[in-house]
């Protein structure tokens, strides 16, 4: 069967690394390109980490492109308390020996999308800056991207503020540009990603594999693990693996069609993904699906199976 061509746009990122290493092993999909963006960490870290993680996954043939160093309008605010200063929770992995790409994310993504004639699925798992720039620079890219499976936002609640999620809050203007572009979107927000967790047994099992991927998992996750203990969350949410696993196995997820826009003007609501899922008022344009639930045991199993195979 023909594999689904997938582009991953990432601010790599501890959970981004899990998403990438899982993506490389999922049968139904083929990673055809990766681009880096500032978010969890600075762009140069994200770029290096994406390259190194892909290399660790044994796929130096997959090209990794550098992207935006800052959000469209807001000042960049990275998250070293979660992802460490290097973006991988201070874990060290070997440097990739792949040639360093100088083509920018938005150009490389556009070329690939055009080449694949509308078949490309893009999984942005960081702020949407690169995608917004690509749409602005190459307006016809909207005809070539099949769908955007995004990690970002929340229909209910938030994490960096009571009502905004990190990726969208980091660059709300880019997110709004993307959601207004007309490209179909499947939004994996906190509603589903907090249900997409690895529990203590899953974590112990992954670490027990003792391979290079599971070593990275162990060495990169400790800050998140400690933060999680502080707030008494029951599992390790694998946010960024959600849109990737969704791309390969959508049947494991549940969502609802709706309109989604990003609040860029609010005082306390900046970066909120505003949906009309439950309001009497409906947006005129409803080309999005908010993903709200996941089959967690199957989700965890796919990550474990991927890690075991390293």
């Amino acid at each position: 069967m023909k594999k689904i061509p997938v582009w991953i746009d990432t601010d790599t990122g501890v959970d981004d690394a899990v998403g990438i290493l899982t993506a490389l092993k999922l049968e139904p999909i083929e990673v055809v390109g990766v681009s880096a963006v500032a978010g969890n960490t600075y762009q140069n870290n994200a770029f290096r980490n994406a390259r190194d993680v892909i290399s660790l996954g044994g796929r130096e043939d997959i090209r990794v492109y550098p992207g935006a160093e800052r959000p469209l309008v807001k000042k960049l605010k990275v998250a070293p308390h979660v992802h460490g200063d290097n973006g991988l929770g201070e874990a060290e992995i070997p440097r990739s020996k792949a040639p360093i790409e100088t083509t920018k994310a938005w150009d490389a993504l556009y070329e690939k999308a055009k080449e694949l004639k509308g078949e490309l699925v893009v999984c942005p798992v960081g702020p949407l800056t690169n995608i917004a720039i690509a749409i602005t620079l190459h307006p016809d890219i909207v005809d070539y991207i099949k769908v955007l499976n995004i990690m970002g936002g929340a229909a209910i609640g938030g994490n960096v503020t009571p009502c905004a999620e990190f990726n969208i809050f980091t660059d709300p203007h880019a997110a709004q540009t993307v959601l207004k572009s007309g490209i179909p979107v499947n939004m994996c927000g906190l509603d589903v990603t907090l249900k997409a967790f690895l529990d203590d047994d899953d974590i112990a099992e992954i670490i027990s594999y003792g391979n290079k991927a599971s070593d990275l998992f162990r060495d990169s996750n400790h800050m998140i693990y400690e933060a999680r203990e502080r707030v008494h969350e029951s599992g390790l949410a694998e946010h960024d693996s959600c849109p990737i696993i969704f791309t390969a196995y959508p049947e494991l997820f549940e969502g609802q069609k709706c309109g989604i826009y990003v609040e860029t003007q609010g005082t306390i609501t900046q970066g909120k993904t505003v949906t009309d899922l439950w309001s009497d008022y409906k947006f005129p344009d409803r080309h999005c699906t908010f993903i709200l639930d996941v089959n967690q045991p199957e989700f965890a199993k796919l990550i474990k199976t991927a890690y075991k195979s390293y």
Binding site: P162, V231, E263, G266, T267, T269
Partner: peptide, 17 residues
């Protein structure tokens, strides 16, 4: 209460956590 906002003026925002 959000006083501004393109989509959220008048929204009641709760800090669930």
């Amino acid at each position: 209460i959000e006083l501004n906002g393109e989509y959220t003026r008048g929204a009641t925002i709760a800090d669930y956590t």
